[in-house]
């Protein structure tokens, strides 16, 4: 357990809890992931809460908006505490990949996440006639 990287999910509104609920629905567990929401918190209080959770462990802090208060609190923490990574633009595929690989060294985890951070956009103006209907 001590070798596993902690994942902290910080988001606006109920996003963090909602994403963790989705992770649990798919994997059956939310072990190693902790949700934090920023409701009512001053920047100082949010940062203190993150620091309390991280302790001295290496951790990945997942945040939603790069320009959000959650991201700024996480960046402030990262600037002063080596071993903490900040990943902006969290989504479910990223969290699932993290969940399955959090025993790896943090550098390898981050390399995996970098490869998976993009979004997929699928669009066509024509119907594919080879696809059978239901």
């Amino acid at each position: 357990m001590s070798d596993e990287i902690l994942g902290i999910l910080v988001g606006h509104g109920k996003l963090a809890e909602g994403l963790l609920d989705a992770v649990e629905g798919i994997t059956g567990s939310r072990e190693g992931l902790v949700p934090v929401d920023n409701e009512d918190l001053t920047p100082e209080a949010l940062e203190a809460r993150l620091l309390e959770m991280v302790g001295s462990r290496p951790a990945v802090v997942f945040v939603d908006l790069p320009s959000g208060s959650c991201a700024f609190a996480a960046r402030r923490l990262r600037a002063r505490h080596p071993g903490i990574a900040v990943v902006c633009g969290v989504n479910l595929p990223l969290l699932l990949d993290f969940t399955f690989h959090r025993t790896l060294p943090i550098e390898e985890i981050l390399e995996r996440l970098r490869d998976r951070v993009g979004v997929s956009i699928e669009y066509s103006t024509d119907a594919d006639s080879s696809v059978p209907g239901r």
Binding site: P43, L65, S67, G68, F72
Partner: peptide
Amino acid sequence: DDRLIHGQVVV
């Protein structure tokens, strides 16, 4: 705003 630059402001 005690959060200064953040989501509500930027977005």
